[in-house]
């Protein structure tokens, strides 16, 4: 068979590989996604809109956005701190910190939720203290924020660490030696160098924060209109034989995910040069 490119695979193999990938994508990603929209609109657009206007669905949407609005900035901040300390400093326990950052990826979300029940639940370690001080964490918004933050913690840090490692500390040292303060150095040197990676990490973190089911399910208490997030609301609607509404709400989540994806693509396309430049040393 004639060799057509320097990598050396024949054209046939290329086409087979591309074909497999596309078929796989079509069945695993595209088909279910289409199905969500088809099911949601099956009874017509009016029914679809009515399903989205439901007060409990609105409350769930508000809660989901509130939780994301708290946990994503927190994780962006903690992610930067963690990546900063891991890549720009040497200290005892650095490897431990690195493993801890990955912990939420390796622990089942349900376990993550249970950890908080064990800590803050009425029978948990801090339960009696919290009750005597009238602080609600579990089965309330703070618990949902905590669980979501825990589950989505690695996204920003994971995105930043390799980049910051590759970039080294020379630019920061240059800035400090030029008389800039630490904060000035961070704002004008470190942050601009990592901003695309940071934005990318924040997008991923946000997508997961809004879609998280397992951990949130454990700490939510499922109080309608108060502690149900969008994914929990979808489950409830589905279990109430309210399939059209369930899929309608699912299209909300899917749309949020699609917006994320589009933003990410635009970012990559718009800033391809800077991304390449900032990855170069």
């Amino acid at each position: 068979m004639p060799r057509t490119d320097p990598i050396g695979e024949s054209r046939l193999i290329q086409w087979v590989l591309i074909g497999i990938s596309l078929t796989f994508l079509a069945f695993i990603v595209f088909l279910p996604l289409t199905l969500v929209f088809v099911e949601a609109l099956r009874k017509g657009f009016g029914v679809y809109l009515a399903a989205l206007k439901d007060a409990e669905t609105w409350a769930a949407l508000r809660l989901t956005l509130t939780v994301a609005a708290i946990s994503v900035p927190l994780n962006a901040l903690f992610g930067i701190c963690a990546a900063w300390s891991v890549t720009k400093h040497n200290f005892a326990g650095k490897n431990l910190l690195l493993s801890l950052i990955d912990l939420p990826f390796s622990v089942s979300p349900v376990i993550s939720g249970l950890i908080y029940v064990l800590l803050f639940g009425a029978q948990g370690w801090f339960g009696p203290w919290l009750r005597s001080h009238h602080v609600e964490i579990i089965f309330a918004v703070p618990g949902i924020v905590l669980a979501t933050t825990f589950v989505t913690f690695p996204f920003v840090a994971r995105e930043l660490i390799p980049l910051m490692q590759a970039q080294g500390t020379e630019e920061e040292e240059a800035s400090l030696s030029l008389g800039a303060s630490g904060l000035h150095t961070f704002w004008h040197v470190t942050l601009p160098n990592i901003k695309w990676a940071l934005l990318y990490g924040v997008l991923l973190c946000n997508a997961r924060a809004m879609g998280e089911f397992g951990a949130v399910s454990v700490v939510s208490g499922h109080v309608r209109g108060l502690t149900n997030t969008l994914p929990l609301q979808i489950e409830i609607l589905y279990n109430e034989y309210n399939f059209t509404a369930a899929f309608a709400v699912a299209t909300l989540l899917a749309s949020l995910a699609l917006v994320t994806l589009v933003l990410k693509t635009i970012l990559e396309w718009r800033y391809a040069d800077q991304l390449a430049a900032s990855h170069k040393h």
Binding site: E170, E171, E173, A174, S175, H188, V189, P192, N193, Q274, A277, S278, K280, H281
Partner: peptide, 9 residues
């Protein structure tokens, strides 16, 4: 610096 450490952005 040896590798200049210019602010790349």
């Amino acid at each position: 610096f040896q590798h200049y450490a210019l602010f790349r952005h």
